[in-house]
């Protein structure tokens, strides 16, 4: 398999210039995630207002896949409702798993087509040991949402 499938230019761009890479002054949903085996670490901070993520901070360090995935994820969830984010997370994780192709709502050949830039991470699926790198920010995002304490 070609390394170019894994290291798409858009991934390397997000790795070199990560978006949303700042700690939030005001956050009401925070979670830390790490892969103990490889040491990747990510912190997700959210400001959730009126059922919407109005701000997101993605910090931490790790490989290009975990960091690019977090960077793209930040762009994808900002301004979205929790409901939409849940659907998006399901689709992303579906794209990363073999079962993902069985989702009737998705094109079996291009399950990531609905995900925009994030589709570039589909090549990671061919490198099984790296899938957990791509999923780490998303799992941490789910954890942060679970911990959200509504102040509305």
């Amino acid at each position: 398999m070609a390394l170019e499938d894994l290291y798409r230019e858009v991934i390397l761009d997000h790795y070199r210039s990560p978006r949303n890479r700042q700690a939030l002054d005001r956050a009401n949903a925070v979670a830390d995630g790490n892969n103990p085996l490889c040491g990747d670490e990510v912190r997700i901070e959210l400001l959730i207002e009126g059922g919407q993520v109005t701000a997101i901070g993605v910090t931490g360090h790790g490989c290009s896949i975990s960091q690019a995935s977090g960077s793209m994820m930040g762009d994808a969830v900002k301004g979205r409702t929790i409901e939409t984010i849940r659907t998006l997370t399901g689709r992303f994780k579906g794209m990363m798993s073999i079962d993902g192709a069985n989702d009737p709502g998705l094109d079996p050949n291009r399950p990531g087509a609905v995900l925009g830039d994030l589709e570039s991470l589909q090549g990671v699926r061919k490198f099984p040991v790296r899938i957990k790198c791509a999923n780490l920010p998303w799992t941490t995002l789910e954890e942060a949402i679970k911990r959200f304490v509504s102040t509305d």
């Binding site: 490889c38 040491g39 960091q67 040991v129």
Partner: peptide, 29 residues
């Protein structure tokens, strides 16, 4: 500029097997 995991993945494609990670020595790293 290249994380150790990325190094290891690319090296593997070239047939070179190296370890990447904290080597069970986190205090040292």
């Amino acid at each position: 500029g290249i994380h150790a995991h990325d190094v290891a993945t690319i090296l593997d494609q070239e047939g070179v097997a190296v370890r990447a990670g904290h080597h069970c020595a986190k205090p040292l790293l």
